[in-house]
Simulated scan of single mutants.
Amino acid sequence: MTPYSYIDTPDALERAVQRLATQPLLGIDTEAAGYHRYLDRISLVQISSREETVLIDPLALPDLDQLGAIVENDAIEKVFHDADFDLRILDRDLKLHVSHLFDTQIAAAFLGVRTLGLGAILEAVLGIVVPKAFQRADWAERPLTEGMKEYAATDTVHLPALRDVLRERLTAAGRLAWAEEEFVRRAQTRWTPPDTTDAFLKIKGARDLTRRALALLRELHAWRETVAAERDQAPFRVVMNEVLLLIAREAPTTAAALRGIKGLSPGLVGRRGDEILAAVERGLAVPDDDLPRFPRAERWERDPALEARGERLRDARNRIAESLDLDPGFVASRAALDDVARVRPTTADALAAVPGLRRWQVEVLGDELLRVLRAETP
């Protein structure tokens, strides 16, 4: 069992923040309810020092500004695992921005680890097996079960010790500065609203529909969003995408035909069947000239020389990654190498000026990339 304190009153929060703000290092994680709820929201904040673990309930504590004394304090190192989502929802929901970050996923990747889930890394590095039973739990549920609280506590209680081992190994490998550069970049992560324009077109399988069926899908998707918002339920829990596609293809116009749609529950047909049929009717009524279509893809001209240059750069990247026992895509993405191929820098300074290229990537790859580029320079 992992000992923890559950914080759900302002006084308890104030005392916990006062204690934690004196610590030099804290493990932090968050839980949200996006898998279950329409309105994804931060539903739990877990913080572990080397001495204690607290679970903070944002649903009971609407004002969490005090946490700024911890997460925005440069004197406190904050240890996250795969901080990307946590940083986004801390920014979105609490307007908090993390400083002095150590991300154990990034650290492990720099050590050549390929399986980067927290459970796998804890088992491989510390020999600790953590439970997985509540990975898809509804964290907006109240009261949380004791099992959920225990699971949440284990997400942070081992982070300080894991950080220590990973940092020591990075230092021994001469890669700590590389990881620290990525930590700083990761800490700049902010929430960006998703683009919901024509979201129905982003459903996998929509491209296989006729334009008439797309019109039905558009109406059905809009109906599902309305119901999901009304019920505060993730849209796929109202109706799966595959079922929406099937309705759009078959265009049922009667309750009997609707009941024949595979995957559509009788209960939903009974409660919402008229609404679904109305959505189908609206889609069938769209004039031919107004039927939706996928935007035309931008045309681009192939550049065989550019493609060959990019391939040579990737070969060089792959050789270096193999020598370092690192994943090639982690050492440098295809997109980054394509940018280098387009710019064609021939000096270290010019290579370092390629947008998005990290200092550590220039250090690791620079000589080989420049050798490839110089070899084709007349």
Score class of each variant (00 low, 15 high):
residue 247 I to A: 03
residue 245 L to H: 06
residue 216 L to A: 10
residue 246 L to I: 13
residue 229 A to Y: 03
residue 236 F to Y: 10
residue 249 R to A: 09
residue 214 L to M: 12
residue 251 A to W: 13
residue 229 A to R: 10
residue 242 E to Y: 01
residue 201 L to V: 08
residue 206 A to K: 05
residue 243 V to W: 02
residue 199 A to D: 11
residue 238 V to P: 00
residue 249 R to T: 15
residue 246 L to H: 13
residue 234 A to E: 04
residue 213 A to H: 13
residue 214 L to Y: 11
residue 211 R to Q: 09
residue 232 D to F: 00
residue 250 E to F: 09
residue 243 V to Q: 03
residue 210 T to I: 08
residue 242 E to V: 05
residue 206 A to F: 11
residue 205 G to V: 07
residue 233 Q to F: 00
residue 204 K to G: 15
residue 202 K to E: 15
residue 213 A to Y: 04
residue 198 D to I: 06
residue 224 R to G: 09
residue 241 N to A: 00
residue 215 A to L: 07
residue 210 T to W: 14
residue 240 M to I: 01
residue 249 R to G: 12
residue 215 A to M: 12
residue 224 R to F: 02
residue 243 V to E: 05
residue 215 A to Q: 11
residue 225 E to Y: 00
residue 220 L to H: 12
residue 237 R to Q: 12
residue 223 W to P: 02
residue 244 L to R: 08
residue 206 A to I: 08
residue 213 A to M: 10
residue 210 T to C: 11
residue 226 T to P: 02
residue 225 E to F: 02
residue 212 R to C: 11
residue 206 A to H: 06
residue 232 D to C: 02
residue 251 A to C: 08
residue 203 I to A: 06
residue 216 L to S: 09
residue 234 A to I: 02
residue 232 D to T: 06
residue 235 P to F: 01
residue 223 W to A: 02
residue 234 A to R: 00
residue 199 A to M: 11
residue 200 F to N: 03
residue 238 V to C: 06
residue 205 G to P: 09
residue 236 F to N: 08
residue 244 L to I: 11
residue 202 K to C: 09
residue 246 L to V: 05
residue 239 V to H: 07
residue 232 D to H: 04
residue 202 K to R: 09
residue 221 H to R: 14
residue 250 E to P: 05
residue 208 D to M: 06
residue 243 V to N: 04
residue 245 L to W: 07
residue 249 R to S: 14
residue 223 W to F: 10
residue 220 L to M: 12
residue 247 I to E: 02
residue 248 A to E: 08
residue 202 K to W: 06
residue 199 A to T: 08
residue 201 L to C: 15
residue 212 R to P: 07
residue 227 V to H: 03
residue 237 R to E: 04
